[in-house]
Nucleic acid binder design. Structure first.
Lengths: 247, 247
DNA sequence: TGTATCTATTTGTATAGACAAAAGCGGGTC
DNA sequence: GACCCGCTTTTGTCTATACAAATAGATACA
C-alpha cells in the first residue's frame, strides 16, 4: 500500500530520471495533478516539495515547476570501510597490526592535521588482505584526547576503522584521493613493484572542530578503484522505512 | 520573513549538526514542538518530514524521532570540468586537440561501453594545460547518434567537455577513479616520467539507457587530487537503536 | 511463566479551506 | 516607446480536523 503523495513523487521522478521529461520541461501544474490523481492540493504539494527539496525540480510562482539540470560536477562516491566492503562482496578479509605506538604530535604532522603540537596520539599501521592477497596499507592517527578508550584497545578482533565508527560520534569528514608511486617499503608490504601506481585515500574525521582521526589507506593500483554513480534520484534520501523490532 | 516550518527545520538542524543533540538523541515529540512554536501539528510535521527525508533523523511511530548516525561510506566528490575548475581557481587554462576522428565502434570498445558494434562515434584526444603546464590528457568518445551536431563541431573555441554539457541533456553519469602508471606516450604528452603514477577519471554519461559520451581523463599524480567533504545534509538513513532520551 | 489482547501514544496520511507572495500580462497614461 | 497599476495565475504557507498504522507497555488469562 503506497501513499498517494509517494506515488505522485515516484511517477514524476520516473519521468525525470528516464529523460522523458528533459531538463527545462515544465511539469504539470498542481491543479492538473490534483485532477489526475483525484486528491487534494496539499497532497500534490507534498510530492512536489519533496522533488524540489531534492533539487530535481525548480518551482516558480505564477510560472510553474520545471525539471532541473543535473550538476555533473558532483558525484556520490561509495568509500567504505575495507572490511565491510570485502564482506559485502563476499570476499574473505583479514588484517594484521604492523605498528601501534603512543606518540606526541610533531610540528609537521600537527600542521597537516590542524591540531596543536604535542597532543597525544595513537599511531597505527595495519595491513589489510582480501582473499589472502594484500589489498591496502592503512596508516592511521587517532587523537587520544578525543578517543581515550583507544589507549587500551589492541584491535585484535575488530579493525581500527570499524572500531572507531562504532565507538566515536563524528560530525564531519573530508576525503582526498591521490595517485602515488609505491616506495620500497610500501611495495614490499603490498607485494607489488616499487614505483607501481597506488591509489591513496586520505580521510580526516572531525567532531565539531577537533580531529578524531586521520588515516591514509594505500591501495595497489592494479587491484583497486573507486566508483560512483550519479543520477537525479541519488541527490538525497527518501526511503525511510520503519525499523523492524528485534524479537 | 522565514516560514515557521523552515525555522523549526533550521533550529533542529543546528542542534544536530553542532552535536548538541548527538546520534541517538530523542528529539522532542511533535506535540511538544507544537507547544513550543505555537503552530499546528502539520507545520511541525512538515519540518520533521524534511529532516527525515534528508536522513538526519529516524522517525518511529509510538516511539519518537531520533538523530541518525551519519554514514561514513558515502561522500560527495567535486568532479568538475577541467576548464571550469581551472577558471574557478583563478588559473589560466588552455587546450589543444590532438586527434579528431570519426570511426565505428570496434567490438572491444562496444562491449566496454555497452553499445552496439559499428555505431558511429567521434573519437577525440585533447591535451589540457593549466598555467602553461600539461595537466590532463582527455580521451573521449562521443556517440554521434546521440549528438549529431558533434559531427561538424571542431571544438576550437570551447573544449569538448563544456560543449557537451551545454548541448546535450543527460540523465545518469558514472565515475570511476583509478591509479595507473604512465606509458611512454602519455608521459611524453604530460611532460612527466614514464611509469609515473597517474590519477585517471573515467566518466560515462547516459541519456535514458543510451551512452552519450565516454571519457578518460588522465592527470599526472604529482599535480592532481580529488577531494570531497561530507555534508551533514547528505546523510543516509541508518537503522539504529535509540540511545538517550530527552527529559 | 508465558501468551494473547487491549490501550495509549506517536507518527503517517489526507482533506478542505484560507490567505499570502511572486510574477507574468495587459491596459492605460504620458 | 517607457512606466505604472491592477488582474490573474501559480506556488507557498498555515490551520483544524480526521482517521489510519505501528507499537511499547499494561493487563488479563491460560
Amino acid at each position: 500500500m503506497v501513499s498517494i503523495h509517494r506515488r505522485i513523487f515516484e511517477d514524476l521522478e520516473a519521468m525525470i530520471v528516464s529523460g522523458v521529461w528533459p531538463p527545462g520541461y515544465r511539469i504539470p501544474f498542481e491543479h492538473e495533478l490534483v485532477q489526475e490523481y483525484q486528491c487534494s492540493r496539499m497532497t500534490v504539494n507534498k510530492a512536489l516539495s519533496a522533488l524540489a527539496g531534492r533539487g530535481m525540480i525548480i518551482r516558480r510562482r505564477k510560472v510553474g515547476s520545471f525539471v532541473a539540470s543535473p550538476q555533473i560536477d558532483r558525484t556520490v562516491m561509495d568509500i567504505q570501510d575495507i572490511s565491510t566492503e570485502a564482506e559485502l562482496a563476499g570476499h574473505d578479509h583479514s588484517y594484521r597490526i604492523l605498528m601501534r605506538n603512543i606518540e606526541t604530535l610533531d610540528s609537521a604532522t600537527a600542521a597537516q592535521l590542524g591540531e596543536p603540537i604535542g597532543a597525544q596520539i595513537l599511531r597505527l599501521h595495519c595491513l589489510h588482505s582480501v582473499d589472502g592477497k594484500p589489498n591496502a596499507l592503512e596508516r592511521r592517527i587517532i587523537m587520544l584526547a578525543m578517543v581515550p578508550s583507544a589507549r587500551t584497545e589492541n584491535f585484535s578482533s575488530v579493525p581500527p576503522g570499524k572500531w572507531l565508527l562504532d565507538m566515536v560520534p563524528w560530525s564531519k569528514a573530508r576525503h582526498v584521493i591521490r595517485a602515488v608511486s609505491a616506495d620500497a617499503a610500501t611495495a614490499r608490504l603490498l607485494e607489488t613493484e616499487r614505483g607501481e601506481a597506488c591509489l591513496t585515500l586520505i580521510r580526516q574525521t572531525w567532531q565539531g572542530s577537533r580531529t578524531v582521526t586521520y588515516v591514509e589507506i594505500i591501495h595497489p593500483g592494479d587491484r583497486f578503484q573507486f566508483a560512483g554513480d550519479f543520477h537525479p534520484s541519488e541527490r538525497g534520501v527518501m526511503d525511510q522505512l520503519p525499523r523492524r523490532s528485534a524479537s
